[in-house]
Design a binder for these strands. Sequence first.
DNA 1: CTCTCTGCAAAGCATTTGCACATTG
DNA 2: CAATGTGCAAATGCTTTGCAGAGAG
Lengths: 141, 141
Amino acid sequence: MEAKTVDAGLLQSRYRLTKQRAAVLRALGDGKHLSAETILERVRAEMPAVSLGTIYRTLDILREIGLVQIFSFAGSAARYEATLEKHHHLLCSNCRSLTNVRADGLADLAHDIARRERFSNIDFALTIVGRCHDCTNRNGA
Amino acid sequence: MEAKTVDAGLLQSRYRLTKQRAAVLRALGDGKHLSAETILERVRAEMPAVSLGTIYRTLDILREIGLVQIFSFAGSAARYEATLEKHHHLLCSNCRSLTNVRADGLADLAHDIARRERFSNIDFALTIVGRCHDCTNRNGA
DNA sequence: CTCTCTGCAAAGCATTTGCACATTG
DNA sequence: CAATGTGCAAATGCTTTGCAGAGAG
């Protein structure tokens, strides 16, 4: 069902639906917050000849269409995620894991700010950085 | 006054207060959201021999101490900003300008989420992406 | 004086791009 | 078929690092 929506997204766009693009979408489907390198591995499981360049080109197209969200890090590789429903992120400063959360009420807050500052056509993202439960117990760095 | 706080921050830390580090802090003081390259230019205005490596090393130390915040982009250079008071960002998707805003009520929301997810020691950042007023009028891409 | 910092230049990574061939619609 | 997409490999751009000499405390 997601795959259907997702393929439709590409078909409706000005881009062609190729094997490679479908495979990237599939790779994103069952895993979250993947790096381009990880996506490459997954896609290569079914299509060994795919190149990293194609992965990046595809991810960029998917982002443009709105099917993929990018999460950029200071000082390491970005992570990519299929846009299923609006959510936000908790990032563990220790193990760098990402957790998805909903943030009810944030939309109103963001739209108020945007209106006040005369921004239109907005999207918004909340990132909470902290130490996750596991890392807190496990103590460490 | 900011300079005093800021130098104190370095002095209290395990790091030395060098001319270069003071200059980086000064460069950040009167301009916001600067790239490492821009900071280099500003610092070189008074100290021509400073290297980009030193700028990056200094920014990393300042971030560690908490005097500087990093704003990472997908696909271009990061921007750095002195941490004066807690605020959030509006990013124009067209001209890439950054605007600072306060977001009252967001702290409560973020802490609620963190508590629920058992994250401790959190910080949080809201980024709103959209088209700024100028770019909306100016139409374009 | 000792330990830390700096400049320089080279290395490292993630990401992007040019080109000739393959594929899609 | 014509237009678009792909693999490959080289290029790019930001950021990091090793080293030998300079500077801080």
